[in-house]
Structure formats: structure tokens, C-alpha cells
Simulated assay, not measured.
Amino acid sequence: MRLMIFTKVYEVKFKHGGEVPVIRHVAKFREGYCPRVARVFNHSNLYYFGDDGGFIVDMETWSKCSSIPPTPASNSRETIVYAYDKVYYLARRSSLEPVTEPSFGRYDPNQKVWEQMTPFPFYDDYDRHMRITGYAVCNGVILFSLCGLINGDFCIAAFNVGRMDWNRVEFDTSACLAPPFQGRAVVVGKTIYALYGEAEIIAFSFKMEKGGDDDIAYSISQLFILQCLEFARPQMPWFDDLTQCLVHLGNHDFFYVQTGWCDSHLKVQYLSITAFQIVVGEGRGYMIKTIHSTVHSVDIKGSEWFDLVLCFTPECEDYEHIEEESIASMNQPRQEITAMKLEIEATQHEEANDAQVGY
């Protein structure tokens, strides 16, 4: 037997009002392990990144249109972030290989080249198993949530895109039991919403204050934690490898998407999709209002399982608040139909042969 690895794309069409979503398998790529994906909204493309480079997919035709050279830190695992018309990577420390420079860089989709950026200066603050749990993009800044796996310490580092510099972010870690961001956080107006544990949403405010010598002090403060998200689960429990995503639909409407491994003997994997709103409840406090939740079975066609890599709505651009930018765009009327494409990667086992695999 030979291990075959694929990346699959599923499209989920959801109509507001509680109708059952429709899941469609739209693409499958046999390009090795490309677990890192970024969406470049202005180009209607998906960028896939693996250890040996990657490729670009046109979301209109779901075909590969060009290749991407490896990141300059090709010997390290990276976190990929799309922000302000560029694709950034930040190399992660591992126990096997130290991070070599350049540890941080960005890809210009227009020029099609990697640019070396200001190196990440805080590796020594963490153990050798440092991981990046998530990130947020707002106010011209990329906020990275960092955690040491051995000592459990976590904090936030900020990269200012305009000033091209790194800074620590003041944050009361005693208020959280886990790193503040899981995956890409959602920015609505001046509030950052992020997944916190399973099916919990945590909200933060972010501040930038100018000090002496033109320095900027960065800080985030926890506003509230929303629990009580009611979502459908499969009849069989998820044992392991749980992955989840928070997806913005505009205004204070969201999707919560979750999947995991139930039983290796099953020919399907279950996908839970929940539409919800964050509303002001009694006493002027915030609460979650579940609109619709359903569980779907996905035919995994010989795969052992799949993980969610990227979830997004094609019609909704990732909101990247810049300083005093108006938030009027956040109050546009809701579209009747919202299509959500789920980007997932699957590990498959097949007998060794050279036959091409379609979809």
C-alpha cells in the first residue's frame, strides 16, 4: 500500500430561513501535502502551500492556473495569513529543526515573488515546541496568537504592516484558560470574535496608543465569552481529530463548522454546519441566537478522515479594519443565498499505481 494525499474542495449552499444546505464536491487535487491555504479575494484565487511550493486555483473554473515557489523558510512549517492584498508566512519552531532566516515574509500576487520581511524576534520566549494557534487582521496589524506546548505559556505578537515592525501585545492571560485565537478570528467593526474551546465564542477589543519616540503600545481586552451555541451533532460521537471554523456572513451573522473522526470503519464523515447570530439580549448583554443547525454525511471515498483547512463565503470579503475606516460596509442587506465553500484536506490510502485520480 502507498499513502496518497489529496486536497478536496466542497461547496455548501445555504439559504437563510432554515432550509437544508446542499453540499457539492467541486474539486480534488493530487499535489502532495498542501495543508496551508489562503484566499486572495481580489484575484478570486486560492493559494495552496506545501513543503515544496504550491499552486494557485481559479475559483471560477476550479482549475490550477499557476504554481508558487517554496517559501524562503522552506525547511520550517509555516502559518499562512492573507492580509491587505499580500500572503504572509511566519515560520514555526519545532523540536526537529530550528527556524532559519528568513523566518517571516510575504508573497505579492501581482509581482509573483516572495519578499523577506522583518524577522520574528520572539522565538526565545517560547519552548522549542512553540505553535501558532490563530491570528486576526485589523487596524493595519496582524495579531498572532502563540503558545508553548511544554510550559503552556501563551501571548500575542503584533506585526504592523505599515511600520514593518514587531511588538508584544499587552494581554491579561489570567482571563483566558487557552490561547485567545483558534484559526482566523473574525473582525466585525472594532470587535474581534474568535473560537474559544468547542463551540464557544470569545470577543476582544483591540487598542493602539501612540507613546513617546513614535512608539505604539498594543493591547487587547476580553469583552465577553458566549457559550450556549446549540448545534447538531452526529449520532456517533466524535472521538478525535476535531477541527472547527468560524465563518463570517456579514453583519453579526456567522457559520460555525465542525467535523471530526467518529469510526474508522465508516465510509462517511460527518460535518456539522450551524448558522447563528450574535444579538443583544435582555439586560443589554450579548447572546447567541441559533438560526439553523444540521449534520451532513460526506462520502470520504476511501479516505481515513479529513480536516477543515479553510472555510469562507465567496461573497464576503475578509474584513480588515484600518484605523478610522467606516463600518458602513458591515451593514449591507443580507443576501438571499449565501454559498460557503469549505476547504478540506484528506489523507487517503490506495494501492500503489500510477493511475490519475479525478473527482
Score class of each variant (00 low, 15 high):
2 R>Q: 07
6 F>W: 01
7 T>H: 08
14 F>A: 07
20 V>N: 09
32 G>L: 09
34 C>Y: 00
35 P>T: 04
38 A>V: 09
47 Y>T: 04
48 Y>S: 03
55 F>E: 05
57 V>E: 02
59 M>F: 01
61 T>V: 07
70 P>A: 14
73 A>D: 13
73 A>M: 10
77 R>D: 08
80 I>E: 00
86 K>Q: 13
89 Y>W: 06
94 S>Q: 14
95 S>C: 12
101 E>L: 13
108 D>R: 06
114 W>V: 03
128 R>D: 12
131 R>S: 10
134 G>H: 08
134 G>A: 06
144 F>T: 10
147 C>V: 13
151 N>P: 00
152 G>Y: 08
155 C>H: 12
168 R>I: 13
172 D>P: 03
175 A>K: 15
176 C>L: 13
176 C>K: 00
178 A>Q: 15
180 P>A: 08
181 F>W: 05
181 F>H: 03
189 G>H: 11
201 I>V: 15
205 S>R: 10
214 D>W: 06
219 S>E: 14
221 S>L: 04
226 L>A: 07
231 F>M: 12
236 M>T: 04
237 P>D: 06
237 P>C: 04
242 L>C: 04
254 F>R: 04
256 Y>C: 06
257 V>T: 06
264 S>E: 10
272 S>Q: 02
273 I>V: 15
282 E>V: 11
283 G>A: 03
284 R>M: 11
285 G>R: 15
294 T>L: 10
300 I>N: 05
313 T>V: 15
323 E>W: 07
329 S>T: 10
330 M>Y: 02
356 Q>S: 08
